[in-house]
Computed example of a mutant assay.
Amino acid sequence: MSRKVLVLLSEHGYWGEELLGPLTHFDQRGYEVVFATPTGGRAHALPPSMDPDYVDPPLGRSVTTPEVAKLVSELDESDRLDNPLDISAVVPDRPYVSDDDYLHALEAYNRALDRLAEHIDAFDTMLIVGGSGPIVDLANNGRVHALILGFLKAGKPVAAECYGVACLAFARDWEDRKSIIWGKHVTGHCKEYDYKDGTGFLGTDFTMGPPPYPLEYILRDATGPDGRYHGNFGKETSVIVDYPFITGRSTPDSFLTGQKIVETLEDGLRRFGW
């Protein structure tokens, strides 16, 4: 049975290995992969993620091998990421309450979500790739949240890596506003891995110091008393499967994240890593 995966990428830079790792597993299995970005712009890898000599400040060492750097550069320079799906063109934007004729606009919005469900039916899962870029255009993107909710409503697993996991914390039903990962076990970029200075984004004219929010704290709060955030700091890898979610902590976990997505789809994996 052929599988189809929707891969969401930031237009402000993704970390190369966090795409390469899962994509390698998808390609090995012959999955069809559709790339998508918030406005249809072409995604690019963050330059440090293609540089084996770049020393990651929190870890004090390179996190990119020469082999991975080469493969990421080849992928980034290829035409494979050209012409991504434009999320803004296929996922409706919820109207403001202050908009004219709000009631009818909301009804139209919900009809559009019903039509979106027909597109989601064609996919088996979705993956949100990490890096600093998702902080800018994915984490608090209402259309991305609607897409995630659509996959969950359809009973399909959702995967996210690194700062892409923030999308799961913020995706909430409009009525109860409770995070979809409430009561779940997840991992994501831990506090120890945060930069003190130099968080950069492609396509912007600024570089900030630390990330604007500590993802670990948000995930700890979003999972609630019956769930848990697992940082696994000091361990080489951290990937958590608590179905329907597959989450990867950061760069070193990318290939394992891809493996667990495949095992979730092919072998019925429902729990891993905790």
Rank of each mutant, 00 (worst) to 15 (best):
A139M: 08
L46N: 06
R94S: 10
I87S: 00
L147H: 01
E216H: 05
V7W: 12
M50S: 10
N110D: 14
N140C: 05
A139H: 04
S73L: 13
H230C: 07
G188S: 10
P84D: 08
D86Y: 07
P92D: 02
V7I: 10
L81N: 05
F151Q: 05
L265N: 03
D93T: 12
L116I: 10
I148N: 01
S73V: 05
N141W: 06
T65H: 04
G13A: 10
E67Y: 04
I261A: 04
I87A: 00
V262F: 09
D53H: 09
E161H: 01
P252G: 12
W15L: 13
V239K: 00
G30I: 11
P225M: 00
H189E: 00
R271G: 03
A171N: 05
D76A: 15
P38T: 11
E11V: 08
G41E: 14
H189R: 02
Y14N: 02
F123K: 03
T257L: 15
S62V: 13
G40T: 04
E263C: 05
D242L: 14
H44Y: 12
P95K: 03
G150K: 01
K196Y: 06
T39I: 05
I240G: 06
D56K: 06
F26I: 00
D51M: 11
L9D: 12
P84K: 12
L269H: 01
A108Q: 14
D51T: 13
